[in-house]
Each structure stands twice: as structure tokens, then as C-alpha cells.
Simulated scan of single mutants.
Amino acid sequence: MGTVHAGPPSESNSGSAGDGHLFVELFDGKSFDGWQHGGNWRIEQGAFYRASGGGPLTYKRDVVPDDFELRFEWKVSEGCNSGVYYRPGQVEYQVLDNVGSPYGENPRQAAASLFFCMAPSKDATRPVGQWNSARVLCKGTVIQHWLNGQKVLDFDYTDPKWADMVELLTIRGGDLTGRGGELWLQDHGQPVWYRSLSWRVIPGDEILEASDDFEPMPIPPAALAKERQRVEAMLRQKRSQ
């Protein structure tokens, strides 16, 4: 794959620390070069398109860097649930139709959440059928998710005040300390599109600090009750193994 410069600030890269650093293009818009799938993904108008059931689309050319910025664009069909996995195990930038999917009732499962861990601070999605721009930044123990030019998730996973959320992810099978995982796009049963995927290594001298004023969206009581039931079922399954 080629390399591209970050270029001037825009909706998809506004406010990026280190704009002008070199990005590696992960998808040329024309081929599956560097990617592996089960035959269920296609390329449509310069985008990956999940056309039928058959599993995820996985980038095989390299593992995800330890400290990185990932940029991509995504578009969902009505009721769609998908996601971009960037650490080993269940560590996912959620891609969702917040309105049409039942997952949308819980902000910890909403678009741009760190799924089943941390809710975004707001719903910044565009309507179904429109493209959304996304960014994931990870350096050390800090994780940021951006959506349509807005930083909607920003936390240090070692901060004790987020311990309960991190434990939720651990129960699900996610480990935020993991490194060296593959980047993959989820097939969860509905049509979804991805394009403009690129990443860069965040250099050692570039500072990424968690915001003190980050506040995830609150979880409605009914959604919280369902989440607790799901957690109890996961724990019962673990105890039975």
C-alpha cells in the first residue's frame, strides 16, 4: 500500500495532534490487496461492502501498531450493527444505526462507543445512508474515539474512576492492555460500508492526554437492567467452564 500525508485539517482530521505525519493507506479503493475475507465482501464505488454472511474482513499485511491513529469512513444500512476491532479480543469501535438497531438503547453499545465498555459523550452520527468519518487514537493507556470531527470518547483506562467500565469489557473478553492484534471489520449480519482506511504510528514525542472533563452518556435504567442480565449470563457461563 502507498502512503498519504494527513493534509490540512478537515472534518475527518480536525484537531489531530501531529497533522502532517505520514499515514499508511490500508485500502486503495479498488482491490482487497492486504485483506482477507470469506468471499462475502465486495468493493462498491471505492468502498468495502459487506454483501452477505461469511465473516469479517481482516487486514493481514501488518498488525495494529502499539501507539497509533486510525482513520476511516463508515456507512450503515437500516438497523445495522458492525464495528472496527483494533486490539486483541473484544476491543471495538462500534458502528451502528443508533435509531434502528436495538443496541442503540444503551449508549455503551452506540456508535463510536468502546463497545460494552465506554459510552461516547454524545450521539454525533449522521442519518442512515450517509457517510460518517471516524478516528481512533491510542497511545499508552489513553484511548480516543472521534466521530464526524468531534472527540466523543477520551479516557485513560488505568484511571480508577473508569474501573467498573473496564471490568465490563474484561467480562466480555476484552483486554485493553493487549497489543499486536489485527485490524478487522465486523460482519454482524447487515450491509455495511467502509472506505478511506489509513493509519499512522504516533511517535514517542507526541503527547496524548485524557481529558479531565470527559463524561460518557448516562445509561437509561431499562438498558442498564438488560446489561446487568447479560453480564450475569456471561459470568455464569465462565463459572461453568
Rank of each mutant, 00 (worst) to 15 (best):
A163N: 05
A163P: 03
D164R: 12
D164Q: 12
M165I: 00
M165G: 07
M165L: 13
V166R: 01
V166Q: 01
E167S: 09
E167Y: 08
E167W: 11
L168Y: 08
L168F: 04
L168G: 03
L169G: 09
T170L: 11
T170Q: 15
T170F: 09
I171C: 08
R172Y: 05
G173V: 11
G173S: 09
G174S: 07
G174T: 08
D175V: 14
D175E: 15
D175A: 13
L176S: 06
L176C: 08
T177A: 13
T177G: 07
G178M: 06
G178N: 09
R179M: 07
G180C: 11
G180F: 12
G180I: 15
G181I: 02
G181R: 01
E182T: 13
E182Y: 10
L183S: 05
L183Q: 06
L183N: 05
W184L: 15
W184A: 06
W184K: 14
L185F: 07
L185H: 01
Q186K: 09
Q186F: 10
D187L: 14
H188P: 07
H188S: 14
H188R: 08
H188N: 14
G189V: 06
Q190I: 03
Q190R: 14
P191S: 09
P191F: 01
P191G: 06
P191M: 04
V192F: 09
V192W: 05
V192L: 12
W193R: 00
W193I: 00
Y194P: 02
S196V: 00
S196Q: 12
L197N: 03
L197D: 04
S198T: 00
W199V: 01
W199M: 02
W199Y: 08
R200W: 00
